[in-house]
């Protein structure tokens, strides 16, 4: 059974095709990630699914209800957290939560168990106004408000954008916890490293899905030899290595440069070529492609 089913949904804004006709589904109880850079169409797709934007073509269902026709039903059973913090800044944590509880005809106390640790972390500050909270706290409050009516499906648009690394990690742990309570989750993010936390992901680029599978399967589909190399100056190293024979692509990734080859090659050959070009390698190793490598490969050669 699918919690969310998308069938040929598309949306244009004038000349711009924000979402090209696409189809996918999210299974019940699944944590599904929409992964892609800014402008890939993630937010537009989410706005269609949460019923605030009508699609140009195709149809989609949430909990087997049509997002265009049955939007009142859907608005009752989803929890939504927009990309931009959108709670009342002049109301306190407690007042915001009570307001949303009231709007959904429920009580704050009834769903504290679902929120678990999330609420416990912000509870000491419940009298503080939302506008005065840190980024991580705002995000936890927004998540609590989205969960207040125990939604069947939780939809989050870039919840970790602009949040520090520790809070991001905590946030994904919370999502795992929520999923164990039987809530299906659709989450979008521009951070490729977060893809691994999802059950399945759709990689998005320019309004299209370019890959859809489990993170592991997508990584496994990467068949080219890939190396992580590091020199004294990675920028110069990348420039020099561009003339390496049989090179497929090279690009920076964290403190390494990732080197993708069209054919098998030994580490020694790489080191020799670098030395010949006047660059000394501090470190070099054969690695396994991560989601970002897969994404870059699809963008450049897909």
């Amino acid at each position: 059974m699918s919690a969310i089913a998308v069938n040929g949904i598309s949306k244009n804004f004038g000349e711009i095709q924000a979402v090209k006709p696409m189809s996918f589904s999210v299974k019940e109880g699944e944590l599904f990630g929409l992964i892609g850079p800014d402008g890939a169409g993630k937010t537009t797709l989410i706005k269609i699914l949460v019923t605030v934007l009508k699609p140009d073509s195709g149809f989609a269902t949430i909990d087997h209800h049509d997002v265009v026709k049955d939007y009142h039903y859907i608005r009752n059973i989803i929890g939504y957290m927009p990309g931009k913090f959108a709670l009342y800044q002049d109301l306190s944590i407690e007042e915001n939560m009570k307001f949303f509880a009231d709007v959904f005809g429920t009580k704050l106390e009834d769903n504290l168990e679902l929120m678990g640790d999330i609420y416990k972390q912000i509870e000491p500050f419940k009298k503080r106004r939302a506008g005065q909270l840190s980024g991580g706290m705002k995000q936890k409050l927004a998540l609590c408000c989205a969960l207040i009516h125990r939604p069947k499906i939780l939809i989050l648009d870039e919840p970790t954008t602009g949040v520090d690394a520790v809070s991001r990690k905590e946030f994904w742990n919370m999502l795992q916890h929520i999923r164990t309570q039987g809530i299906s989750i659709l989450v979008s993010t521009p951070y490729m490293d977060e893809a691994a936390k999802c059950d399945r992901i759709a990689l998005m680029q320019d309004g299209s899905i370019i890959a859809l599978d489990t993170p592991q399967a997508i990584r496994d589909s990467f068949t080219y030899p890939i190396f992580g190399i590091r020199g004294a100056n990675n920028y110069h190293l990348i420039e020099k290595m561009k003339s390496f024979p049989h090179l497929r692509s090279i690009y920076p990734s964290g403190e390494f440069a990732h080197l993708v080859m069209n054919q098998e090659i030994t580490l020694q050959e790489i080191e020799d070529f670098a030395a010949k070009s006047g660059e000394k390698l501090i470190e070099s190793k054969l690695i396994k492609a991560d989601i970002e490598d897969c994404f870059i490969e699809m963008m450049q050669h897909g």
Binding site: T51, P82, A86, Y88
Partner: peptide
């Protein structure tokens, strides 16, 4: 502030 969108997606 975007709160209109949030309260729209409610009963």
């Amino acid at each position: 502030l975007g709160t209109m969108e949030v309260i729209s997606i409610s009963p």
